[in-house]
Design a binder for these strands. Structure first.
Length: 509
DNA sequence: TGATGCGCACACT
DNA sequence: AGTGTGCGCATCA
C-alpha cells in the first residue's frame, strides 16, 4: 500500500471533501493535492487510479457523477464488497470486479476494517475474524472450516497474514477483473455492475450456496454510467441544468437506475415564528478560522493537531495508535460528536465521562446548565450520568477542591444527601475502589456477590473498573441485554461501586 | 475568485 | 425511519 506516493494525501483529500460536504471527485482531489502539497494533477490521477485498483479508494457513481470513497471509512464498503462477491446489486453503488477467488472471508475482513479502521493498519486478529464469521453462521463456520477457507484465501493472495499474526486484505489483489467497464473516451476505469452471469466466477461451492438465494434469477445489464459522467459542474451552471439533469435521469433510469440527479430546490421563503432561536453558527468559514490564524492560536492548533492525529487512529489521550497505556492492543472508540478517538482504558473516568458507545471528548462536552463548553471554564463530569457542569453552574456550586473523578451531580444524588457536596458523606471503605480493576476483577467481584451470569456478561462486554464507573443506568438496563429483573439488581451493584456507598436512598433515589 | 461551512433535499438501506 | 451524500448558497480571505 505504502508505495503509492500520494496515498495518504488522496485519502486526506477525500476525507476533507466529505467533511466539507463537497463531492470527492477527481477534480477536487487533484485541486486539493495541488494546492496543499503541490502534487501535479496527472500524478494525482495516476495514484488515484492505483488506489482504486487496490480497493483503498472506491470509485462509485452517485447521483449521476463519479465520487471517490475512502474504503476504510466508507460505511457501505461492506455492501460494495458483498456485491462484488455475489455479482449482484440493485443500487448505483453496485460494483463488481470479482476476482473469482475473492470470498466471504475477504468481505469479512473488509467489513471488520470498516467497523474498526485501525485494523487497516495492524490487521484483523484471527479471533475477531472467527467470531465475526461464527456470528454469521456458527454451524457452517466451524473453526476447522474457517482454517481451510482462510488458508485458501491466503494461498490465493486475497488475504495476507501480517507479521503480528493478524489478517489484512492483500495490497495487490489478483487483477483479473473481467467485468470492469473501461471507458475508451477518458481512459477511466470504473468498477461497475455487470451481472449477466453472477456466478460465473470460480466461487467455491460452499460460498455459492451461501449466496445463491440472493443471486437467483438476477440478470441486470450494466449501465454505461460513464457516458453521463462527463457532465461536470460547469455544465451544471451554464443554464442547461434542467435539460442535462433530465437527460441524466432519462439515461440512467432507462438502465434500471433511480434518478440520481438532484433537483434545484426553491428558496425557503416562509417565515415560521417558531424559527426564532439562537443562531447556531454563521455559514461559511468561522471568523479567524484561516489556517494562519489557527496556527497563531496555540490552543486551537493543539486541538487541530490532536484531531489530525486521531483521524489516523491515534488515541486522543495517550497518543498511541494501536496499543493502550498498558502496551496492549485495544480498539479505539470515537467521540460521538467529532473524530477524536480513545482507548477505553485510557479514559479517565472523572474527566472525560465516557461509555464505550457514548463517549464524548472534552472539547465537545457542554455544560448541562449553560450549554457552554470547556472554553468557559473547566467542566466537572458526573461519574454516574456523564453530564458535565461548570462548578459555578452546578446547583449547588461545587467547591474548588471537588475532584472530578469523584463528582456525582445533584441529579444523581437525592436532595437528602446533598451533604455529599459538603464532603461530609463518608465513603464506605467496605466497598472496593474499582477504578483500577481489570475485566477479570470486575467479573470475579460480581460472581462473589452472587451474580455469576451477569458476571459473565460483564466479562463478555470487556467491562473493567474504569468502564464500570462510567456505566449509566441505560447501559446496564438496556446495553447488556439482560432481563429487567437481574439488570436492576446488577445496576444496584454497579451504582454501589460507583459511589462507594450502600445507602439504599442513594442507590435507589 | 477560490476555499470553506452547512442547510436541506435526495438517495439508499 | 435512519443515515449517507452532495448541491447550492453564504461567507470569508
Amino acid at each position: 500500500m505504502s508505495e503509492i506516493k500520494n496515498r495518504d494525501r488522496i485519502l486526506e483529500a477525500i476525507d476533507q471533501l466529505r467533511r466539507r460536504k463537497a463531492r470527492p471527485d477527481a477534480e477536487r482531489i487533484c485541486n486539493f493535492l495541488l494546492r496543499r502539497f503541490g502534487v501535479d494533477s496527472q500524478d494525482t490521477i495516476a495514484d488515484l487510479e492505483r488506489l482504486v485498483e487496490e480497493d483503498i479508494v472506491i470509485k462509485v457513481e452517485y447521483k449521476g457523477n463519479i465520487s471517490y470513497r475512502n474504503a476504510a471509512k466508507w460505511s457501505r464498503f461492506a455492501m460494495y464488497n458483498k456485491n462484488k462477491e455475489e455479482g449482484f446489486t440493485g443500487s448505483i453503488y453496485g460494483s463488481l470486479n470479482s476476482e473469482g477467488t475473492s470470498s466471504l472471508l475477504s468481505s469479512a475482513v473488509a467489513e471488520l476494517i470498516i467497523h474498526e479502521p485501525d485494523y487497516l493498519d495492524f490487521g484483523v486478529p484471527g479471533t475477531e475474524l472467527e467470531k465475526y464469521m461464527q456470528e454469521k453462521d456458527s454451524v457452517r463456520f466451524t473453526k476447522k472450516y474457517l482454517d481451510v477457507i482462510l488458508q485458501r484465501e491466503l494461498n490465493s493472495g486475497n488475504i495476507v497474514k501480517l507479521e503480528n499474526g493478524n489478517y489484512s486484505l492483500a495490497d495487490h489483489p489478483v487483477p483479473s477483473n473481467p467485468n470492469v467497464i473501461n471507458n475508451a473516451d477518458n481512459n477511466e476505469t470504473v468498477k461497475m455492475l455487470k451481472i449477466d452471469s453472477p456466478n460465473s466466477s470460480q466461487v467455491s461451492e460452499e460460498e455459492q450456496n451461501q449466496t445463491s438465494e440472493l443471486n437467483a434469477n438476477v440478470n441486470v445489464t450494466s449501465p454505461k454510467a460513464e457516458d453521463v459522467n462527463n457532465k461536470n459542474d460547469d455544465n451544471m451552471h451554464d443554464g442547461k441544468e434542467e435539460t442535462l439533469e433530465t437527460n441524466v435521469a432519462a439515461s440512467v433510469s432507462t438502465e434500471g437506475y433511480r434518478d440520481g440527479a438532484k433537483r434545484k430546490r426553491s428558496k425557503k421563503v416562509f417565515f415560521d415564528p417558531s424559527d426564532i432561536h439562537i443562531p447556531t453558527r454563521k455559514r461559511g468559514r468561522p471568523v479567524g478560522a484561516t489556517s494562519k490564524n489557527k496556527d497563531k492560536d496555540a490552543g486551537k492548533s493543539n486541538i487541530a493537531i490532536t484531531k489530525a492525529e486521531t483521524d489516523k487512529g491515534f488515541c486522543y489521550l495517550c497518543m498511541n495508535q494501536g496499543q493502550d497505556r498498558r502496551g496492549q492492543f485495544e480498539k479505539l472508540i470515537s467521540c460521538k460528536d467529532c473524530t477524536n478517538k480513545v482507548h477505553p482504558s485510557c479514559i479517565d473516568s472523572g474527566k472525560e465521562g465516557a461509555s464505550s458507545s457514548h463517549w464524548q471528548c472534552v472539547q465537545c462536552k457542554t455544560c448541562a446548565v449553560c450549554i457552554e463548553t470547556i472554553d468557559k471554564g473547566p467542566l466537572m463530569v458526573c461519574c454516574c450520568c456523564s453530564e458535565s457542569y461548570h462548578p459555578s453552574c452546578h446547583d449547588p456550586k461545587l467547591p474548588d477542591e471537588t475532584r472530578s473523578s469523584e463528582f456525582v451531580c445533584s441529579r444523581c444524588i437525592p436532595p437528602a444527601t446533598r451533604s455529599y457536596y459538603g464532603m461530609d458523606a463518608q465513603i464506605d471503605d467496605r466497598i472496593p475502589d474499582v477504578s483500577g480493576w481489570s475485566v477479570e476483577q470486575v467479573s470475579k467481584y460480581l460472581e462473589e456477590q452472587g451474580y455469576p451470569v451477569q458476571a459473565a456478561v460483564f466479562r463478555d462486554h470487556d467491562i473493567d473498573g474504569p468502564s464500570l464507573l462510567l456505566m449509566k443506568r441505560s447501559d446496564v438496563l438496556i446495553g447488556l441485554h439482560l432481563k429487567l429483573g437481574p439488570a436492576l439488581k446488577i445496576y444496584g451493584q454497579v451504582k454501589k461501586l460507583q459511589i462507594r456507598q450502600s445507602d439504599p436512598a442513594l442507590l435507589w433515589p
